[in-house]
Design a protein around this nucleic acid. Structure first.
Lengths: 208, 208
DNA sequence: TAGATTGTTAATCGATTAACAATC
DNA sequence: TAGATTGTTAATCGATTAACAATC
């Protein structure tokens, strides 16, 4: 039912919808109109109806949307109907932070192993996860169907690690190293440049 | 020279320009054309010229752009001509990761103190930073001109902490708690919802 | 039924791309 | 000078908003 050229702008907003609808469901709200949802999320009612209608009519005229149903549908569209297995390469601060992030687990994005090259940390545990040597990564990927590889290594290691992940049939890569990686067609890649946000803040502090 | 209604899309790309130009300068490249820069960054030459011309003509016909000069100009526009003082509220994994992030320091975004409520961590050091009790935040802000407050607390604490930061005259807030905060006019706010990126990845893995 | 609100088409706005004269 | 590449205007594309008939 999805597909059919969903505009990129809409895809980027889906996680926000899911987040808000989860909160609304938690507080026990049963129905909501595009108008009300728009006020909370800072979008126009019109835009919300347009967005949702990319995927078919989940609403009911004169009533609005059923919160739980809409949340469930958007969850399906986002692919949240199954668990995702993840490994993290780089057991530094960011790697550790991500491995412990509760909200990922709540949505069944499950980090199951850390890999690093540092003698100091290999063999230890971080939270409940073992830290394996990087040398063991290829084998691990060969024996486990990992969906997502998360790269939190320094710059220089990022592309080689990325290649190992691709070789090991990972379907998506989430990169925190401040480099732009190249992946073959068919592998999804999302790079996070944390400092970009700081630069936008300093831009706004400086100008207007 | 800046201002004059710089489109938001352009502002969002400025950190990327700065990042690429820094790399190009490091490898010793002296000049670059919009064509070449576009190939590296995955943008069209036309877009690059449009973007740069929001701020005035830094290029030279028949030659292109001087890498160092263009980088310096964009740095100025982004407000990187001075240091920014930062505090981090929440000394958990993410707070610690951010306090240690070398690339922030390189651009003179300087975290100088952590605050937390946990007895266990208050009074300790994380890297070179002291962890102060949250109670000490108001005083600290009164006695130090802090530019940026970074919130890495749990959800429930985020809005109260945000209010304290605003009260203490912080100019910008960078929020990692998974809530949408409200700040008065004049304070910049950037919320990072880390898991959104995972959801976009699972969307792409699921659909096409 | 009458009132409310969706689904959807049309109008507007903003951002990207194309084109080319200006000029180094 | 001739060649290259910018700065800038015009054309296209995509995304947002407005409007309203369909319908619950």
């Amino acid at each position: 039912m999805p597909r059919d050229k969903v505009p990129n702008a809409v895809v980027q907003r889906l996680p926000g919808y899911y987040r808000y609808l989860t909160i609304l469901e938690e507080i026990g709200l049963v129905r909501i109109s595009s108008q009300q949802l728009g006020e909370r999320m800072g979008l126009t009612a019109s835009q919300i109806r347009q967005d949702i209608n990319c995927f078919g009519g989940f609403g009911q005229q004169g009533y609005g949307y059923n919160v739980s149903e809409l949340r469930a549908r958007i969850g399906e569209i986002l692919g949240l109907t199954r668990a995702y297995r993840m490994v993290i390469i780089g057991a530094g601060n960011i790697g550790q932070a991500i491995s412990n992030y509760q909200s990922f687990r709540d949505m069944r994005f499950e980090a199951e192993a850390l890999f690093d090259i540092s003698e100091e940390i290999v063999g230890r545990k971080v939270g409940d996860l073992f830290v394996f040597p990087l040398d063991a990564l290829a084998d691990y990927l060969a024996n486990n169907a990992i969906d997502i590889g998360i790269i939190t290594t320094p710059k220089s290691a990022a592309q080689p690690v990325c290649d190992m992940l691709v070789e090991g049939n990972v379907k998506a890569i989430w990169n925190f190293a401040p480099v732009d990686l190249s992946v073959p067609e068919g592998v999804s890649l999302k790079s996070v440049h944390l400092s970009d946000a700081l630069l936008v803040l300093s831009y706004h502090m400086t100008n207007g």
